[in-house]
């Protein structure tokens, strides 16, 4: 049974900024359904007494003390940037991309 529509998939691809072709959409719709079905099986075995987990380690309250630690210099911070200007990261025009 199809759980995800072609339109939904196209929307998700757009949100994730993935360029997915029309042909790929058809392929991935079917594949994603298989994945979703498989994951849904986990829900069948987990009863109400089993809390959902987001982390493999059974830990809570892991905190850092509020103390300053050395970071990067401006030069180091910008060293991997394709472009920079006045100590800042330079990025292409932001609006317009979506239209």
């Amino acid at each position: 049974m199809s759980q995800i529509s072609r339109d939904e998939l196209a929307h998700l691809a757009k949100l994730a900024r993935l360029g997915v072709s029309e042909a790929e959409l058809d392929t991935f719709v079917g594949q994603l359904d298989v994945i979703l079905d498989s994951v849904a099986k986990v829900g069948e075995v987990a009863g109400d007494d089993i809390p959902p987990m987001s982390h493999a380690a059974n830990l809570t309250n892991v905190f850092r003390s509020d103390e300053i630690r050395p970071g990067l210099s401006q030069q180091e911070a910008l060293s991997g940037a394709p472009a920079s200007e006045d100590g800042r990261f330079c990025v292409p025009r932001i609006l317009g991309e979506e239209q």
Partner: peptide
């Protein structure tokens, strides 16, 4: 606070650009 939410960079208004940064907040 003295530092940022998830790393030990200073939480201070202003400053030279990109001088309160580290691999985590970048």
């Amino acid at each position: 606070t003295r530092t940022k939410m998830f790393c030990g960079c200073p939480n201070a208004f202003g400053g030279e650009p990109n001088t309160h940064v580290c691999p985590t907040c970048l």
